[in-house]
Design a binder for these strands. Structure first.
Length: 262
DNA sequence: AAGCAGAGCAACCGCGACCCG
DNA sequence: ACGGGTCGCGGTTGCTCTGCT
């Protein structure tokens, strides 16, 4: 593999690898090189591009930041719903989940989960993998997202975009597990209408979900177990959802109170 | 205005899988 | 079959920003 002329054996010796934040110059070098030669073979790419970075670092920078199709900004309710659904199915398979969110990286989804979702679980004083938290996600959070998506569409009967992705019904193993390079198009999901109301959601979920179904009364128990967060207003002993920025404010105490009435 | 704490996110690390000679 | 190089994933770290006191 060829090195740029400017890189002499001498400079090679003192070529200590750079770490930490990328500079604009490094970004340009990487982008220009990939534009000219394509991506892949990251270690040699790093050397040939004249970057004092590991191939790993270059790959990460490209995939998570420089790639032209990378989407930045708030995770939309549709995306949130999809993440919750896919995570309940696959767990921490971030790259796999990312395949279903075009433009989103596994790193971004992982960060979203760790910061937002785990914080949420912390407020409920339970583990993200606990039944309690999964129930909260399934019966409160996800229906609420669906409502929000519908509301945003301006049509109460409109199909929820995310509903076209019903991993629940997808083959458990639609493709070999090395599908990381196969792209999302290799996986096919059957469109399934979402329930029209929160009440229906239990049925909807119950039908396809092998897990335990909790009773509405369990909500109260679940919620009342949670002491108000220090910064919360203490209403109803609920976690202070208003403090959580779900892109926009997803919850209000009033909303949760209404949900509890089911 | 300054200090502090927490949140968010970019980047690194370790490890296992894969590829190729 | 084997070994070295490379890649990709998931977990973790640490820096920066923001809001609060």
């Amino acid at each position: 593999m060829e090195f740029h002329g400017s890189i002499t054996p001498q400079s090679e010796e003192e070529m200590d690898l750079r770490r930490g934040p990328w500079t604009v110059e490094e970004d340009l070098l990487l982008m220009n090189y990939i534009a000219a030669h394509g991506e892949g073979r990251w270690n040699s790419l790093a050397r040939c591009a004249g970057l004092r970075r590991t191939g790993k670092s270059c790959r990460l920078r490209w995939l998570n930041y420089l790639r032209p199709d990378v989407r930045r900004g708030n995770i939309t309710p549709e995306e949130q719903l999809l993440i919750l659904e896919l995570h309940s199915r696959w767990g921490n398979r971030w790259s796999k989940i990312a395949q279903f969110l075009p433009g989103r990286t596994d790193n971004e989804i992982k960060n979203y989960w760790r910061t937002r979702v785990q914080k949420h679980a912390k407020q409920l004083k339970c583990d993200v993998n606990s039944k309690k938290f999964k129930d909260v996600m399934r019966y409160l959070w996800m229906p609420r997202l669906i409502e929000r998506i519908r509301a945003a569409s301006g049509d109460a009967t409109a199909a929820v975009p995310a509903a076209h992705w019903t991993p629940e019904l997808a083959p458990v193993n639609p493709s070999p597990d090395n599908s990381s390079t196969a792209g999302s198009s290799s996986l096919q999901f059957s469109p399934q209408p979402l329930p029209d109301s929160f009440a229906d959601y239990s049925t909807w979920r119950g039908g396809g979900y092998s897990g335990d179904v909790i009773q509405p009364s369990d909500f109260a128990a679940s919620w009342s177990e949670s002491t108000p967060s220090p910064g919360g207003d203490g209403h109803l002993g609920l976690p202070d959802f208003d403090q959580i920025q779900w892109g926009e404010s997803l919850w209000s105490v009033e909303d949760i109170w209404l949900q509890q009435q089911f």
